[in-house]
Amino acid sequence: MEATITLHVDGYRRELTVDTRTTLLDALRDRLGEYSPKKGCDHGQCGACTVLADGRRILSCLALAVAQDGAHVTTAAGLAQGGGGPHRVTRAFLEHDAYQCGYCTPGQICSAVGALSELEAGMPSHATDHPDAPVRTTDAEIRERMSGNLCRCGAYPAIVAAVREAAQ
């Protein structure tokens, strides 16, 4: 079965017809040729496919494309070419060499942007002392919130440094 949907990808309106079994990740990659989000597991276990959908970070391999009809999707490509230059998180990743092979990186960057807005909104995490306590941007908070994004190259210390810097 097929369905026609609209996605706004990095500011561009894209209309496409997809098999209803198609995930948002495959729609972006295989249908639209938007290869910035990566496929590391296709099962919501690695974070490589993380994008921002209407401002929130989601795993695009766990989202069906048809369910995202009308969504505004931002990928790391969109973050890298914002009007005012690359996003501060993107810049911080470059500065800290927070990647090696780069395959987890677009997902890490989208996830970091999402995590920083969650922090700003005061959403607690497992690393927060108490659900009612004010949330502070500590390394422990960053590590916890970035733990859905695996990096086999082991760039975590640099990723934390980059996110910490971008948070300031």
């Binding site: 290869y35 890298a80 470059l94 060499d97 990186t105 677009p106």
Partner: peptide, 19 residues
């Protein structure tokens, strides 16, 4: 020195095999 392909990688533009 920063990686030559750094900007492409952080944007997700550096093409891997499937891409």
């Amino acid at each position: 020195l920063p990686r030559t392909e750094g900007e492409a990688k952080v944007a997700g533009h550096a093409p891997y095999a499937y891409e």
